[in-house]
Amino acid sequence: MDEPALIRAAQRGDLEAFNRLVLTYQDALFNTALRILSDEELAADATQEAFLSAFRALNSYRGGSFKAWLLRTVTNACYDELRRKKRRPTTPLEPETEDGDEMESPRWLADPSASPEEQFDQADLEHAIQHCLDGLPTDFKTVVVLADIQGLDYTEVAHVIRVPLGTIKSRLARARLRLRECLQAFGELLPAAFRLGKERGA
């Protein structure tokens, strides 16, 4: 059964059809939630909540990209989770200085027992990206996750977070600029293919 047929069946209350859509998009929604929330448990909760909300509000879907529609529900779930987190703050997992400030340097990535080559694996790259994403305001982070990690176009991102197209362009430019600076700070800790030069062609 193709996607539109599954959506129509799910809109008639066919839970099995909806669950097939869940299996198709659950990785995308979970990854989006994970990048925004930076916590696996919270991301899983937000993803589950998003699918539940999506099933309940399925009749409000009026065509267009179903993925973008689902990403809107998970983004809303993430914002709810962040608001809850703000009301009940938890201890950050990143190390703190003696003064209690969070460490800005990427020293937490370094593992003295591992070789430099081992440090340049995918996990390190992921940690570096996540660290830089966490330094962004939530609005910027959401835009860059949707556009650059999930691959939505500007119109779809505007539809997901319900802001004008101009705002998307502006937020994305600012986010990319700050991410470039952050990733440059990682320097040698990034795999060679991903090192950012300060000059073109460096």
């Binding site: 669950n19 869940v22 979970f30 990854n31 790259l125 990319r176 600029l177 991410l179 470039r180 991903f194």
Partner: peptide, 23 residues
């Protein structure tokens, strides 16, 4: 620099969902 930053973000490792979120 912007192009490289975008390339890195596009190559962010994709995680598999830790479990099925079927209802």
């Amino acid at each position: 620099g912007l192009h490289q930053a975008r390339s890195i973000l596009r190559r962010t490792p994709k995680r598999r969902a830790p479990r099925n979120f079927t209802l």
